[in-house]
Design a protein around this nucleic acid. Structure first.
Lengths: 232, 232
DNA sequence: CGGAGCCGATTGGTCGGGCCACTGGGCGGT
DNA sequence: ACCGCCCAGTGGCCCGACCAATCGGCTCCG
């Protein structure tokens, strides 16, 4: 007759669920500090070890943040915090899944460009242009890649959808892009890449959402089709 | 000169990275069984507690799977395994972020519908139709919601991009949809919802990608604008 | 009076060991 | 040949201790 904590699943799993509902129910606000590990363990009637595993789980998900010597805190619960795990997905994906991810990135990048075309400010437009200029100013693959990433990020930011920015960041994670570029660059397509970026910028400058969508989709599609042909 | 384990970050965090690279480097294949917790702990020179935390972390990310009494295994590393965490994001998002997620869902749902229009098989078309019929056959909100979800899922599956299906599943996670529906249904818009779904089906039947994209975008946009007005 | 530096309580991080619960394969009985 | 029991292996959980980073208050010096 004590069923306060129905023994469904493992103890740790239950602890994770309980912490999650504490947040989703609104009992824990973003930025707020939690009780100590020792307290929480006692309250949920489990050992500190299990409690720590639960906390670690929510930490890697970007929901909690543990500061050594200070305490455990709820993150801001914003997209950037929560979607960091997308990078892991991209890193561990291979073969056909890479292509599927590219297909998704194409759709989102196109959407971001379209939204940006409608909302972008002169300052943001200038920043995007900066990165394009930088891509023209060097032949160093690493530097070009860096400005390539910055270019797309600036466009996404101009769209005003922070969640979308976080997702695209994840899909463009370091190793993901690096893996694709390694080899892609060998065929000397820097000029074409620069041109594609220019087309996107042109569309943004013209405040033409459909043109921007098409240019961005074509750009990502270029990489995508190369990847598809090479069947990595 | 001992760089075997660069003391960057915490011990557990290092263990997580090492396990991840074991997989991404190809030393661990999907489905393969790992050494025991005790073994791994010894090999990485850490305690079993820390090792368990690392394993738990990769478990919640959908990378590893622990079977009590049997061992620890690498998952298939497919989208469905890895993207389960997206549901957590959707569950914990609120206010403006919900709208941003909807904007993303609109883009992806539209893309999925467009792809499906080009590729869908007669059997898959029949299944989609089944769920639409079911939505017309009842007035029970729960049942309608269930077939609504199934309808969209069937469309996404017909698109052939498993990763996209997994992402949309996450964005349409139980509580996410339930939260939106609660109240939305009160305004008695079942008929409009059914009509929107019918438009999508019509476009699929006509093999018209652009029409399908527009119909799907309009459908999600309907919910989105309602949400935006209500500013949850 | 004010600021710099020390100090200790608090709290997360790590460790080692012990016990329990489940799995699976081998062994013995039928 | 088949079935069922048994037990070694393995993950799940707990305990208690100690280490290390933090942070606030206190002291001491200028």
């Amino acid at each position: 007759m004590e069923r306060s904590t129905p023994p469904r699943g493992t103890v740790t799993q239950r602890a994770i669920e309980q912490l999650k509902s504490l947040i989703s129910e609104g009992h824990l606000e973003p930025g707020q500090r939690l009780p100590t590990e020792r307290d929480l363990a006692v309250r949920l009637g489990i050992s500190r070890s299990s409690m720590r595993e639960a906390i670690r789980a929510l930490t890697v998900l970007g929901v909690l943040e543990a500061r050594h010597g200070s305490g455990i805190y709820v993150t801001r619960l914003q997209a950037a915090d929560l979607l960091e795990t997308l990078g892991v997905v991209a890193d561990l994906s291979r073969g056909p899944q890479l292509i599927e991810l590219m297909e998704i990135r194409r759709a989102l990048e196109a959407t971001a460009a379209a939204i940006a075309a409608a909302r972008i400010s002169p300052e943001q437009l200038a920043e995007v242009e900066t990165h394009l200029d930088a891509m023209y100013a060097t032949e160093d693959p690493g530097e070009i890649l860096a400005h390539d990433l910055a270019f797309h990020r600036a466009v996404a930011v101009a769209g005003g959808n922070g969640t979308l920015v976080a997702i695209l960041d994840g899909l463009s994670s370091r190793t993901f892009r690096a893996r694709v570029w390694r080899g892609y660059q060998e065929e000397g397509v820097f000029d074409r890449t620069r041109h594609e970026h220019r087309r996107i910028l042109d569309a943004l400058r013209a405040r033409d959402p459909e043109a921007a969508r098409a240019a961005a989709a074509a750009h990502v599609g270029e990489v995508e089709s190369w990847l598809r042909a090479r069947q990595t």
